[in-house]
Design a protein around this nucleic acid. Structure first.
Lengths: 137, 137
DNA sequence: AGCAAATGTTTGGTATGGCAAACAGTTTGC
DNA sequence: GCAAACTGTTTGCCATACCAAACATTTGCT
């Protein structure tokens, strides 16, 4: 596989898109609904940006909208969001529990990488953490 | 620190820019010189793209150009490049030596994150790896 | 000298992803 | 009922970052 460095943007999803999915997911869960404005407020971006970005996610089949403009994740969107959350949690746990990185910094670092780690890395990191916590915990 | 998710692009350097620096560095080291065309070929992008991107790095003081259009890193550019390489090596080592991730996948994952990990994480990852290799190696 | 190849820059196009601001609907309150 | 507030979309603009293609310049060879 040549041009490894070019694969950076060739992920299933971008950082921004991932956070739009997470926003919809969290808003639905905690408030029962998610509209464009809610997502914009959640992410601290303008409604214009949120509108455009969410439209994009709709066109990719990750988000659905009902007759009343209420947003929710499709099954595929839910799967992507779940995977992102899982990767973030795993890496965060590694940073904090294993490396003793400051929680704030761990939050930043795990947030930046949550959409970039491969399934293989995530799976093996999980295994490692389970073993580690059994031993040291 | 709010808007953690927005910090993704607020790094010292972008993924693309980092690889332009690494290209100049490697070309200088292995061939003795680095020109726009060399960087373009190295990164498998057009000379137009390389020209624009390198101009940007020049304006940021990370790259210098002599009278003959030969490029080299400034001290600051060298420092950034070195840090990127170090982070990539550390994470690669963690993936391969600790997690047993496939080398090809580890290359991809470490390449994606090389410019994103914090100094704290890098420093603590290094400590961890030293200990780990003394024990298990 | 002169032409061709190599090198480098610029221009116009794509895409993401921010912004502000104009605009269009809908809902709410008086 | 009507104005104000709220919600959503669209339009221009910015920056990054890629492309192709046109253009300019420099180098090299005969």
């Amino acid at each position: 596989m040549e041009d490894v460095w070019k694969q950076f943007e060739e992920n299933n999803i971008t950082h921004s898109a991932a956070h739009h999915l997470l926003a919809v997911r969290d808003l639905k869960k905690t408030r029962g609904y998610a509209r464009v404005t809610d997502v914009a407020r959640y992410l601290n971006i303008t409604t214009g940006s949120a509108s455009t970005n969410l439209k994009n996610l709709k066109s990719k089949g990750l988000i659905r909208e009902d007759e009343n403009k209420f947003l929710e994740l499709t099954d595929e969107g839910e799967a992507v969001a779940t995977a992102v959350i899982k990767r973030k949690q795993l890496f965060y746990s590694f940073l904090v529990d294993v490396l003793n990185v400051n929680e704030e910094q761990a939050d930043i670092d795990s947030c930046k990488t949550e959409h970039l780690l491969s399934a293989e890395t995530a799976q093996k990191l999980e295994k490692f953490l389970n073993k580690y916590k059994k031993q040291a915990g």
